[in-house]
Amino acid sequence: MSVATVIPAFVTRESFIELEARDRAQALMDPGSWRELVGPFDRIESPWLPMQSIAPQSDDGCVVLKGTIAGQATVVIALEGGFQAGSIGEVSGAKMTAALDLATHDSENGRKTAAVLLLETGGVRLQEANLGLAAIAEVMASIFALRQHAPVVTVIAGTVGCFGGMSLVAGISSYILMTREARLGLNGAEVIEQESGIEEFDSSDRALIWAVFGGEQRVGMGVADELLQDDAKEIAAAVQRCLKVGLPVVHRSQQIDLYRDGIAALDTSQQIEPLTLRKNWNNKQAKTKEGSA
């Protein structure tokens, strides 16, 4: 028995959530294998934020590292939740799309290149509104193309979570990995409360928010793949497992009948109890997890 096994796990564990985007991306890659592309010193910043008296960031909140993970060529794209809530603007979106397209190009030319997306994002950057929305549509188009060749793994660690249009990006990924501190949804609780009233969603009800959006629930109901501890090593190992398995037999966002039937069976006369979805939905997901290399 090694010494490590008698030390409680939380003592030796390195928090992933506490890392900035750049450090998160690095923590997943083989040491010494990666290079950052279009990094901060290239200074491609948002032209739209300063016009609105908002300071830009030199990497526009999007970190792109190209290298290997367990020997597999991979591009890791990490959004920085600390800058404009990880929102997608013209530049951050273009960086994502370009990196994904280049991974597709390499994959089509005999060098299979997977993508790992670290999504901490509220979705469209409202200060760049239509270019942000367009960028998300383009990121999705690029993922659809890459996904034919190599897996696209989304990691949502927290604490921002993954919301808005970027939740669709998670939805079309090959795999979604989450921690208990992560949330995933199209509209956050505040937005629902604003648009549909407090009786629809009380955004001060923390327990309800976690019951609906939290990683445990999303994995429990089968719309995300693995629930992980906030531990850099554990998350890195889970990413490696996904890359090793390769493409799923069928992507979750192509299982139309399964989910259409699930929706048809819901009682919509009242709110849906999250726990019932864990019970009724999850066991039907087994197929996605038996991947083919």
């Binding site: 949804g185 199209l186 509209n187 937005v191 629902i192 648009e195 549909s196 629809e200 969603f201 609906v212 959006f213 999303r218 109901m221 719309v223 989910y259 699930g262 929706i263 819901l266 919509t268 709110q271 849906i272 999250p274 979805l277």
Partner: peptide, 9 residues
């Protein structure tokens, strides 16, 4: 913008 919708992903 609904809770049912978010709950059912």
């Amino acid at each position: 913008y609904g809770r049912r919708e978010e709950t059912a992903a």
